[in-house]
């Protein structure tokens, strides 16, 4: 008797996942293997332990600076998303529903405008920015806020669509709440999951960003890793692995957080 349904057979499923999974795992395995290479034919942990060796402190200083810069940029970008984008989205949904389509359009533009194009015009803008804010690294987050806009918008929008924020806020208002209370005590708790997702995605994008930093001659994780790879490819590889692992852990967490949300099931 034939099977009915859209699901693959177990054999098919594991064959597909196995083959593609294996191919996808190869580069990462190769990185691990590479990071363990010592003298020809031998493996060693020296490259890993060497990172924290005080003797190499000078050598790796730039690298750690890059890491620090990227983390700072991630924080500021997350701040931009949550303190600027989210309130704007809420405001538009509640007070200017007609602008909804425009906001969406604007937020999705960065998909059409590649970072490599944006950076051409960002150079003169940053000329002005550094005159106002100085040339410290965190100002780069303004540009990163733009590049994460489509992802952040979608994550927050999904959360907003899941709860009827208009009704929620009307209910809260009718119970006597002021706008600030409505926002912080009613809306934010309900779209918190979307804000968290947006923050995690923003963090991942910022940690992986290379184009803008590189072409504006700023130092972040990616540019400093590329720089050090010329002199010490092993440590560059190790940092690449660690960054991958960190981002993966972040996304697993968000995945699990998303999984525990109550679902409206109809079966």
């Amino acid at each position: 008797m034939n099977r009915v349904g859209i699901e693959p057979r177990a054999v098919t499923r594991w064959l597909i996942l196995g083959v593609i999974g294996l191919l996808m795992a190869l580069p990462i395995v190769a990185m691990v293997e590479f990071s363990l290479r010592g003298a020809p034919g031998e493996y060693t942990l020296d490259h890993w332990t060497g990172i924290l060796d005080p003797e190499n402190e000078r050598k790796y200083r730039g690298l750690f600076e890059g890491v620090g810069n990227s983390l700072l940029l991630a924080v500021v970008t997350v701040l931009i998303v949550n303190a600027m984008l989210v309130p704007t989205m809420v405001l538009v949904a509640l007070r200017f529903p007609k602008l909804q389509r425009w906001l969406e359009f604007v937020c999705l533009i960065p998909i059409t405008v590649p970072a490599i194009v944006l950076v051409v015009g960002l150079a003169p803008v940053y000329g002005v920015v550094s005159r106002i804010f100085g040339s410290s690294i965190w100002t780069l987050a303004f540009a990163y806020g733009i590049t994460v806009l489509p992802y952040a918008y979608r994550a927050v929008r999904a959360a907003m669509d899941a709860v009827d924020i208009v009704t929620l806020s009307e209910a809260a208002r009718s119970l006597g709440a002021g706008w600030l209370t409505v926002f912080f005590r009613v809306l934010v708790p309900n779209i918190r999951r979307g804000m968290l997702a947006a923050s995690v995605i923003a963090t991942a994008v910022v940690l992986g960003e290379f184009t803008i930093a590189s072409l504006l001659n700023r130092e972040n994780l990616q540019t400093s890793v590329l720089l050090i790879s010329r002199s010490d490819p092993y440590v560059a590889t190790i940092f690449a692995l660690l960054a991958l692992l960190f981002a993966f852990a972040l996304l697993v967490i968000i995945g699990r957080v998303g999984a525990v949300q109550p679902r409206r099931s109809s079966s």
Binding site: I28, F34, A204, V225, S229, P233, T237, A240, A243, L244
Partner: peptide, 12 residues
């Protein structure tokens, strides 16, 4: 996470 790290991975 494409970018630079991918280059290392494939060189390795």
């Amino acid at each position: 996470f494409g970018g630079v790290m991918l280059a290392f991975a494939f060189i390795a």
